[in-house]
Write a protein that binds this DNA or RNA. Sequence first.
DNA 1: CTGTTAGCGCATTCAA
DNA 2: TTGAATGCGCTAACAG
Lengths: 358, 358
Amino acid sequence: MTVTLADVAARARVSPATVSRVLNGNYPVAASTRERVLRAVDDLDYVLNGPASSLAAATSDLVGILVNDIADPFFGIMAGAAQTQIGGPGDGSGRAGGEKLAVICNTGGSPERELTYLTLLQRQRAAAVVLTGGAVEYPAHQAAMAAKLAKLADAGTRIVFCGRPPLPEGDALVAALAFDNRGGGRRLTEHLIALGHRRIGYVAGPPERTTTRHRLEGHREALRGAGLDTDPADEERLTVHGPYDRRSGYEATLEILRREPGVTAVVAANDTVALGACAAVRDQGLRIPQDISVAGFDDLPFSVDAVPALTTVRLPLFEAGARAGRLAMGKENPPPGGIATIAAELMIRGSTAPPRVG
Amino acid sequence: MTVTLADVAARARVSPATVSRVLNGNYPVAASTRERVLRAVDDLDYVLNGPASSLAAATSDLVGILVNDIADPFFGIMAGAAQTQIGGPGDGSGRAGGEKLAVICNTGGSPERELTYLTLLQRQRAAAVVLTGGAVEYPAHQAAMAAKLAKLADAGTRIVFCGRPPLPEGDALVAALAFDNRGGGRRLTEHLIALGHRRIGYVAGPPERTTTRHRLEGHREALRGAGLDTDPADEERLTVHGPYDRRSGYEATLEILRREPGVTAVVAANDTVALGACAAVRDQGLRIPQDISVAGFDDLPFSVDAVPALTTVRLPLFEAGARAGRLAMGKENPPPGGIATIAAELMIRGSTAPPRVG
DNA sequence: CTGTTAGCGCATTCAA
DNA sequence: TTGAATGCGCTAACAG
């Protein structure tokens, strides 16, 4: 029924070992023999048995890419980019050669699912794992992650972080590409301050995530730098946390406007949240940017099409994802020290302007 | 070094077979024995060897989800939804039980890569494959796909189409969830005609894709129904094809406005394209919807936040993806005849209005 | 309910 | 450059 390597060997009149060598390509085989084997493969429409091959070789061609929310283009762009470096372009024959299988795993932002997926990938003896997006900072989870990743690395799985800071207790067992969320957040708020804003609302992400914390820290750094951090209680009052989605942006913004009608600008944790913030501002009968400035983070593709176009911080998601993919494949050397910080670029557009006078 | 099932058996003082039975859970085992085994598993931090297990069982716990472009939320939403039904919620232990590993494969819309991924999944002896999005209609590719899918089905892989029409020569070997692209396209254009529009530009997707063809056919059906299809050359002139991205929407719209300055409405192949169309309209100094109405398709999350909010056709992407996931898991029975058509709902919003008089 | 016995299909020694 | 032999770690009969 199912064609095996032995069938191919028989038809090509060689030993199974030779067929294996041809298929894996990492061993000298006479050209004529190779020819004969490949013809037999095509004739029989043979497809390698992955599990058997992985069992014998003790490694698989699976590469896992973990994301928090694949419906969010932030992750979609990084994951897609990583996959371009891993899957290989194919040779056009559809026959599939030595390519790796890049697989995207959607954790939904849940620490448990993150661990479960890592176990599943460990079970598959994955060749590499790419972890994208911010991490959850619960100590117990961090410890569990560190232990799990150590075990994976131990088993020969390459670990790459993409857009995520290295673990606190992180040994040099990983390569990490971290976004400069703090710097980006700082420059964004500095921009608002330079425009003349003094009371700035902040719609933050979930408090337990590193991304949230770093962006917020950048924001407060800027406030502090301008001497605007006079009252900590005030800062609290102008900050509302919520998930990284539109609805949260909408509701948090309403809340901020309720708490402090005098805000002249709202900074959102990311562009999706900013869209919700814009909707809330508009629904209150206020104009952007004349009455309230709004800013986002990430510079997702749709942000330039918002009306007015969204001021935001650009993260090179595609480039970072592609680089992570290459690191996972061992096609590129890790950065010095294992960690590279990826710069964030301030994109000033129409959604921010000086506050109304008075 | 690496702990095996035999090690667990030894520590639990049972046979390897018993351990296997406990782990797979599909066989009666005494509670006390199970207890002992599970403790041994935890003590030794044992993780099943997936390849070995797949080899012996001749099936794996991999489920493939093929998408054209994972950076596009259209696919991200469907893929994420499918994964919720496949990955299982986990048991919170991070230990991973009998879950399947749902993996997303990004074809980039390339027929070759689509085939390559199917081969890779075939090699892994995938339990199921979900194909999302429109198909490419090149006869050679369709034949190759049919052959490949037949082989997969033959090997016991469940095949599910999601948002994609069944193959022409499709046997009943698959379950297919098809979107009513034609009906949605028709109703959208009927809406514009009812508003009074007579010269409607159409920014279509790539000509070789079923999605493109069906939406365009719906559009023309509506024109025909209103007696507006008087001149085929005219219809050609008002239709411009391009990829499903923002840039294409921008450029095609400029082209349409150049060819026929008298258009009062532009229909885009999807929402992303519509965003580009809006930008083009605006850059020409025209207002939406006063000067030109613009409509999209899909109702992606950002569409309601466009200004004005985008009139579009809602596709229940999440629900469809989740259902596809359940079908792939065998948790739900296939629809009668193997094919279900999923309704599309017209969402009338601010971006469409009656044309200016005169 | 549990143990014993055979492979699953391939990569990799070691010889030739 | 090629062939023969061995075992990867597990599941699935079949007994008991």
